[in-house]
Amino acid sequence: MHVDSNQTITTEFVFQPFSSVPTTRWLLFVLFFLLYIAIVVGNTSIVWVVHTDRALQSPMYFFLGNLALLEVCYTTTVVPQMLASILDPCTTISLAGCGTQMFLFLGLGGTDCFLLAIMAYDRYVAICQPLSYLLIMTQKLCLRLVVAALSLAFLLSLELTALIFAMPFCRRQINHFLCDVPPMLGLACADIHIHQTVLFTVSVTILTVPFLLICLSYAFIGTAILRIRSAQGRRQAFSTCTSHLTVVLLQYGCCSLVYLCPKSKSSEDEDRQLALIYTFATPMLNPLIYSLRNKDIKGALRRAVRRTITSHPH
Protein backbone atom coordinates (compact mmCIF):
# COMPACT_ATOMS: atom_id res chain seq x y z
CA MET A 1 0.00 0.00 0.00
CA HIS A 2 1.63 3.21 -1.14
CA VAL A 3 0.73 6.65 0.23
CA ASP A 4 2.11 9.86 -1.25
CA SER A 5 4.27 11.62 1.36
CA ASN A 6 2.70 14.97 0.37
CA GLN A 7 -0.80 13.77 1.28
CA THR A 8 -2.22 14.48 4.74
CA ILE A 9 -3.79 11.49 6.48
CA THR A 10 -7.26 12.35 7.78
CA THR A 11 -8.28 11.35 11.32
CA GLU A 12 -11.69 13.07 11.45
CA PHE A 13 -14.46 13.64 8.95
CA VAL A 14 -17.42 15.88 8.15
CA PHE A 15 -20.54 14.82 6.28
CA GLN A 16 -21.76 16.36 3.03
CA PRO A 17 -24.37 18.97 4.06
CA PHE A 18 -27.92 18.56 2.78
CA SER A 19 -28.16 22.30 2.25
CA SER A 20 -26.18 25.49 2.88
CA VAL A 21 -29.36 27.50 3.57
CA PRO A 22 -30.03 27.78 7.36
CA THR A 23 -33.84 27.77 6.99
CA THR A 24 -33.73 24.62 4.86
CA ARG A 25 -31.40 22.96 7.36
CA TRP A 26 -33.85 23.68 10.20
CA LEU A 27 -36.77 22.31 8.19
CA LEU A 28 -34.80 19.14 7.41
CA PHE A 29 -33.81 18.82 11.07
CA VAL A 30 -37.45 19.01 12.19
CA LEU A 31 -38.58 16.57 9.46
CA PHE A 32 -35.93 13.94 10.22
CA PHE A 33 -36.35 14.37 13.98
CA LEU A 34 -40.10 13.76 13.72
CA LEU A 35 -39.50 10.71 11.48
CA TYR A 36 -37.00 9.38 14.02
CA ILE A 37 -39.50 9.82 16.88
CA ALA A 38 -42.16 8.04 14.79
CA ILE A 39 -39.74 5.14 14.17
CA VAL A 40 -38.85 4.81 17.86
CA VAL A 41 -42.46 5.07 19.07
CA GLY A 42 -43.87 2.75 16.40
CA ASN A 43 -41.29 0.00 16.76
CA THR A 44 -41.11 0.26 20.56
CA SER A 45 -44.90 -0.20 20.63
CA ILE A 46 -44.52 -3.42 18.63
CA VAL A 47 -41.80 -4.67 21.02
CA TRP A 48 -43.98 -3.76 24.00
CA VAL A 49 -47.18 -5.50 22.87
CA VAL A 50 -45.30 -8.61 21.68
CA HIS A 51 -43.57 -8.84 25.07
CA THR A 52 -46.65 -8.18 27.22
CA ASP A 53 -49.64 -9.63 25.33
CA ARG A 54 -50.22 -13.35 25.89
CA ALA A 55 -52.04 -13.69 22.56
CA LEU A 56 -48.76 -12.84 20.76
CA GLN A 57 -46.55 -15.43 22.44
CA SER A 58 -45.72 -17.33 19.26
CA PRO A 59 -42.57 -17.68 17.11
CA MET A 60 -43.95 -15.34 14.41
CA TYR A 61 -44.37 -12.48 16.88
CA PHE A 62 -41.11 -13.27 18.68
CA PHE A 63 -39.29 -12.63 15.40
CA LEU A 64 -41.41 -9.53 14.71
CA GLY A 65 -40.52 -8.11 18.13
CA ASN A 66 -36.83 -8.68 17.45
CA LEU A 67 -37.16 -7.05 14.02
CA ALA A 68 -38.79 -3.97 15.59
CA LEU A 69 -36.04 -3.74 18.24
CA LEU A 70 -33.40 -4.00 15.50
CA GLU A 71 -35.04 -1.14 13.60
CA VAL A 72 -34.81 1.14 16.66
CA CYS A 73 -31.11 0.30 17.22
CA TYR A 74 -30.31 0.53 13.50
CA THR A 75 -31.83 3.99 13.12
CA THR A 76 -30.32 5.25 16.39
CA THR A 77 -26.87 4.33 15.08
CA VAL A 78 -27.28 6.89 12.28
CA VAL A 79 -29.83 9.59 13.06
CA PRO A 80 -28.42 11.46 16.13
CA GLN A 81 -25.09 12.13 14.36
CA MET A 82 -26.98 13.02 11.19
CA LEU A 83 -29.17 15.55 13.04
CA ALA A 84 -26.10 17.14 14.63
CA SER A 85 -24.43 17.56 11.24
CA ILE A 86 -27.61 19.07 9.74
CA LEU A 87 -27.68 21.75 12.45
CA ASP A 88 -23.95 22.39 12.19
CA PRO A 89 -22.30 21.23 8.92
CA CYS A 90 -18.89 21.66 10.61
CA THR A 91 -19.67 18.90 13.14
CA THR A 92 -16.91 16.29 12.90
CA ILE A 93 -16.82 12.57 13.56
CA SER A 94 -13.57 10.94 14.62
CA LEU A 95 -11.92 8.02 12.84
CA ALA A 96 -12.88 5.72 15.74
CA GLY A 97 -16.43 7.11 15.83
CA CYS A 98 -16.82 6.60 12.09
CA GLY A 99 -15.54 3.02 12.36
CA THR A 100 -17.92 2.29 15.24
CA GLN A 101 -20.87 3.69 13.30
CA MET A 102 -20.00 1.58 10.25
CA PHE A 103 -19.58 -1.57 12.36
CA LEU A 104 -22.96 -1.12 14.08
CA PHE A 105 -24.75 0.00 10.92
CA LEU A 106 -23.53 -2.98 8.88
CA GLY A 107 -24.00 -5.45 11.74
CA LEU A 108 -27.56 -4.38 12.54
CA GLY A 109 -28.47 -4.07 8.85
CA GLY A 110 -27.09 -7.55 8.14
CA THR A 111 -28.99 -9.01 11.10
CA ASP A 112 -32.14 -7.38 9.72
CA CYS A 113 -31.66 -9.19 6.38
CA PHE A 114 -30.96 -12.56 8.02
CA LEU A 115 -33.96 -12.13 10.32
CA LEU A 116 -36.26 -11.51 7.34
CA ALA A 117 -35.04 -14.84 5.89
CA ILE A 118 -35.73 -16.56 9.22
CA MET A 119 -39.23 -15.07 9.25
CA ALA A 120 -39.82 -16.49 5.76
CA TYR A 121 -38.78 -19.93 7.04
CA ASP A 122 -41.17 -19.49 9.97
CA ARG A 123 -44.04 -18.77 7.54
CA TYR A 124 -43.03 -21.81 5.46
CA VAL A 125 -43.26 -24.12 8.47
CA ALA A 126 -46.55 -22.54 9.62
CA ILE A 127 -48.25 -22.98 6.23
CA CYS A 128 -46.59 -26.12 4.83
CA GLN A 129 -46.27 -28.10 8.08
CA PRO A 130 -48.97 -26.63 10.35
CA LEU A 131 -49.39 -29.72 12.53
CA SER A 132 -45.68 -29.78 13.37
CA TYR A 133 -45.25 -26.00 13.64
CA LEU A 134 -44.86 -25.73 17.43
CA LEU A 135 -42.74 -28.89 17.54
CA ILE A 136 -40.29 -27.48 14.97
CA MET A 137 -40.30 -23.78 15.91
CA THR A 138 -39.49 -24.26 19.58
CA GLN A 139 -38.47 -21.38 21.81
CA LYS A 140 -34.93 -22.73 21.92
CA LEU A 141 -34.66 -22.92 18.12
CA CYS A 142 -36.09 -19.39 17.69
CA LEU A 143 -33.56 -17.99 20.15
CA ARG A 144 -30.70 -19.84 18.47
CA LEU A 145 -31.72 -18.54 15.04
CA VAL A 146 -31.73 -14.92 16.28
CA VAL A 147 -28.34 -15.36 18.00
CA ALA A 148 -26.92 -16.98 14.84
CA ALA A 149 -28.20 -14.06 12.70
CA LEU A 150 -26.61 -11.52 15.08
CA SER A 151 -23.32 -13.42 15.30
CA LEU A 152 -22.87 -13.93 11.55
CA ALA A 153 -23.87 -10.35 10.67
CA PHE A 154 -21.54 -8.77 13.22
CA LEU A 155 -18.67 -11.09 12.29
CA LEU A 156 -18.96 -10.04 8.64
CA SER A 157 -19.34 -6.40 9.71
CA LEU A 158 -16.21 -6.60 11.88
CA GLU A 159 -14.12 -8.07 9.07
CA LEU A 160 -15.27 -5.50 6.52
CA THR A 161 -14.96 -2.53 8.90
CA ALA A 162 -11.47 -3.58 10.00
CA LEU A 163 -10.40 -3.92 6.35
CA ILE A 164 -11.81 -0.47 5.43
CA PHE A 165 -10.28 1.36 8.39
CA ALA A 166 -6.87 -0.22 7.92
CA MET A 167 -6.56 2.11 4.90
CA PRO A 168 -5.32 5.72 5.08
CA PHE A 169 -7.88 8.40 4.20
CA CYS A 170 -6.75 11.57 2.42
CA ARG A 171 -10.02 13.45 2.14
CA ARG A 172 -12.15 14.82 4.94
CA GLN A 173 -15.67 15.24 3.56
CA ILE A 174 -17.86 12.14 3.32
CA ASN A 175 -20.38 12.45 0.47
CA HIS A 176 -23.09 10.92 2.64
CA PHE A 177 -24.85 11.36 5.98
CA LEU A 178 -23.27 8.26 7.54
CA CYS A 179 -20.01 6.29 7.48
CA ASP A 180 -21.08 3.69 4.91
CA VAL A 181 -18.61 1.58 2.94
CA PRO A 182 -18.95 3.03 -0.63
CA PRO A 183 -18.40 6.71 0.38
CA MET A 184 -15.52 5.77 2.70
CA LEU A 185 -13.80 3.89 -0.13
CA GLY A 186 -14.02 7.12 -2.13
CA LEU A 187 -11.90 8.91 0.51
CA ALA A 188 -9.09 6.34 0.56
CA CYS A 189 -5.64 7.19 -0.78
CA ALA A 190 -4.79 3.57 -1.55
CA ASP A 191 -5.68 0.83 -4.02
CA ILE A 192 -9.24 -0.28 -3.19
CA HIS A 193 -9.76 -3.16 -5.63
CA ILE A 194 -9.43 -5.82 -2.91
CA HIS A 195 -11.79 -3.85 -0.66
CA GLN A 196 -14.38 -3.61 -3.44
CA THR A 197 -14.16 -7.37 -3.99
CA VAL A 198 -14.61 -8.06 -0.28
CA LEU A 199 -17.54 -5.60 -0.14
CA PHE A 200 -19.23 -7.39 -3.05
CA THR A 201 -18.65 -10.80 -1.41
CA VAL A 202 -20.06 -9.66 1.93
CA SER A 203 -23.01 -7.98 0.17
CA VAL A 204 -23.83 -11.21 -1.67
CA THR A 205 -23.67 -13.12 1.64
CA ILE A 206 -25.91 -10.65 3.48
CA LEU A 207 -28.32 -9.76 0.67
CA THR A 208 -28.41 -12.37 -2.10
CA VAL A 209 -28.21 -15.59 -0.04
CA PRO A 210 -31.02 -14.66 2.40
CA PHE A 211 -33.12 -13.31 -0.49
CA LEU A 212 -32.77 -16.62 -2.39
CA LEU A 213 -33.82 -18.50 0.78
CA ILE A 214 -36.84 -16.19 1.08
CA CYS A 215 -37.75 -16.89 -2.57
CA LEU A 216 -37.39 -20.64 -2.00
CA SER A 217 -39.58 -20.48 1.12
CA TYR A 218 -42.27 -18.57 -0.75
CA ALA A 219 -42.13 -20.98 -3.69
CA PHE A 220 -43.11 -23.79 -1.29
CA ILE A 221 -45.64 -21.51 0.44
CA GLY A 222 -47.23 -20.58 -2.90
CA THR A 223 -47.52 -24.24 -3.87
CA ALA A 224 -49.11 -25.08 -0.51
CA ILE A 225 -51.60 -22.18 -0.75
CA LEU A 226 -52.69 -23.24 -4.26
CA ARG A 227 -53.56 -26.69 -2.84
CA ILE A 228 -56.03 -25.13 -0.39
CA ARG A 229 -59.50 -25.70 -1.84
CA SER A 230 -61.47 -22.82 -0.34
CA ALA A 231 -60.86 -19.25 -1.54
CA GLN A 232 -61.21 -17.97 2.02
CA GLY A 233 -58.56 -20.44 3.23
CA ARG A 234 -56.17 -19.30 0.49
CA ARG A 235 -56.74 -15.64 1.36
CA GLN A 236 -56.22 -16.31 5.06
CA ALA A 237 -52.97 -18.21 4.46
CA PHE A 238 -51.61 -15.58 2.08
CA SER A 239 -52.59 -12.69 4.37
CA THR A 240 -50.08 -13.92 6.98
CA CYS A 241 -47.31 -13.44 4.39
CA THR A 242 -48.18 -10.13 2.69
CA SER A 243 -46.76 -7.89 5.45
CA HIS A 244 -43.48 -9.78 5.44
CA LEU A 245 -43.26 -9.72 1.63
CA THR A 246 -43.81 -5.95 1.55
CA VAL A 247 -41.01 -5.37 4.08
CA VAL A 248 -38.68 -7.72 2.17
CA LEU A 249 -39.19 -5.87 -1.11
CA LEU A 250 -38.53 -2.49 0.53
CA GLN A 251 -35.42 -3.63 2.39
CA TYR A 252 -33.75 -5.76 -0.26
CA GLY A 253 -34.67 -3.49 -3.16
CA CYS A 254 -32.93 -0.40 -1.76
CA CYS A 255 -29.93 -2.23 -0.27
CA SER A 256 -29.26 -4.21 -3.46
CA LEU A 257 -29.18 -1.02 -5.53
CA VAL A 258 -26.56 0.48 -3.17
CA TYR A 259 -24.27 -2.52 -2.57
CA LEU A 260 -24.64 -4.83 -5.57
CA CYS A 261 -24.99 -2.49 -8.58
CA PRO A 262 -21.94 -1.20 -10.51
CA LYS A 263 -20.85 2.26 -9.37
CA SER A 264 -20.48 5.50 -11.28
CA LYS A 265 -19.68 9.02 -10.13
CA SER A 266 -23.32 10.03 -10.43
CA SER A 267 -24.40 7.11 -8.22
CA GLU A 268 -23.07 8.71 -5.00
CA ASP A 269 -26.05 11.08 -4.74
CA GLU A 270 -28.42 8.25 -5.69
CA ASP A 271 -26.91 6.08 -2.92
CA ARG A 272 -27.55 8.86 -0.42
CA GLN A 273 -31.19 9.11 -1.51
CA LEU A 274 -31.65 5.33 -1.31
CA ALA A 275 -29.98 5.32 2.12
CA LEU A 276 -32.64 7.79 3.31
CA ILE A 277 -35.27 5.22 2.34
CA TYR A 278 -33.77 2.30 4.25
CA THR A 279 -32.77 4.54 7.18
CA PHE A 280 -36.17 6.22 7.59
CA ALA A 281 -38.91 4.84 5.34
CA THR A 282 -38.45 1.11 5.95
CA PRO A 283 -38.13 1.28 9.78
CA MET A 284 -41.10 3.67 9.94
CA LEU A 285 -43.29 1.62 7.59
CA ASN A 286 -42.56 -1.75 9.24
CA PRO A 287 -44.79 -1.22 12.31
CA LEU A 288 -47.48 0.38 10.12
CA ILE A 289 -47.41 -2.49 7.63
CA TYR A 290 -47.60 -5.14 10.34
CA SER A 291 -50.15 -3.37 12.54
CA LEU A 292 -52.50 -2.39 9.72
CA ARG A 293 -52.45 -5.79 8.00
CA ASN A 294 -52.42 -7.98 11.12
CA LYS A 295 -55.57 -8.26 13.21
CA ASP A 296 -53.67 -9.84 16.14
CA ILE A 297 -51.29 -6.85 16.37
CA LYS A 298 -54.21 -4.39 16.03
CA GLY A 299 -56.10 -6.22 18.78
CA ALA A 300 -53.04 -6.29 21.05
CA LEU A 301 -52.46 -2.55 20.54
CA ARG A 302 -56.11 -1.80 21.37
CA ARG A 303 -55.89 -3.93 24.53
CA ALA A 304 -52.63 -2.22 25.52
CA VAL A 305 -54.16 1.25 25.09
CA ARG A 306 -57.27 0.15 27.03
CA ARG A 307 -55.09 -1.18 29.90
CA THR A 308 -53.12 2.06 29.97
CA ILE A 309 -56.28 4.21 30.11
CA THR A 310 -57.93 2.10 32.83
CA SER A 311 -54.75 2.05 34.94
CA HIS A 312 -54.52 5.87 34.79
CA PRO A 313 -58.10 7.09 35.36
CA HIS A 314 -58.76 10.85 35.24
Rank of each mutant, 00 (worst) to 15 (best):
L108T: 14
L108D: 05
L108S: 13
L108A: 10
L108P: 04
L108V: 11
L108R: 04
G109A: 10
G109T: 06
G109I: 05
G110V: 10
G110A: 06
G110S: 04
G110N: 06
G110M: 05
G110D: 01
G110E: 01
T111I: 15
T111P: 11
T111Q: 14
D112Q: 13
D112G: 15
D112W: 15
D112T: 15
C113I: 10
C113D: 03
C113K: 07
C113A: 14
C113V: 15
F114M: 09
F114L: 06
F114Q: 04
L115P: 05
L115R: 04
L115F: 06
L115H: 03
L115D: 05
L116A: 09
L116T: 07
L116G: 09
L116M: 09
L116C: 10
A117F: 05
A117M: 05
A117D: 02
A117P: 07
A117V: 03
I118M: 14
I118F: 14
I118V: 15
M119G: 12
M119H: 09
M119L: 12
M119I: 12
M119Q: 15
A120D: 05
A120E: 01
A120Y: 05
Y121F: 15
Y121E: 12
D122Q: 12
D122M: 09
D122R: 07
D122K: 06
R123C: 14
R123L: 10
R123I: 15
R123E: 09
R123Q: 09
R123Y: 11
R123D: 07
Y124L: 12
Y124H: 12
V125I: 13
V125E: 08
A126R: 08
A126N: 07
A126E: 03
I127D: 00
I127R: 00
I127E: 00
I127G: 00
C128G: 08
C128D: 05
C128S: 06
C128Q: 07
Q129V: 11
Q129K: 06
P130Q: 00
L131A: 12
L131R: 11
L131P: 13
L131M: 15
L131C: 13
S132M: 03
S132W: 05
S132H: 04
S132Y: 02
Y133W: 02
Y133K: 01
Y133C: 02
Y133E: 01
Y133V: 03
Y133H: 03
Y133F: 03
Y133M: 01
L134F: 14
L134S: 12
L134D: 11
L134W: 10
L135A: 08
L135Q: 01
L135M: 07
L135F: 06
I136M: 01
I136F: 04
I136N: 02
I136G: 02
M137R: 07
M137S: 13
M137H: 11
M137C: 15
M137K: 09
M137I: 10
M137V: 12
M137G: 12
T138R: 09
T138L: 05
T138D: 03
T138G: 08
T138V: 07
Q139C: 00
Q139P: 00
K140P: 07
K140Q: 10
K140V: 11
K140E: 09
K140G: 11
K140T: 13
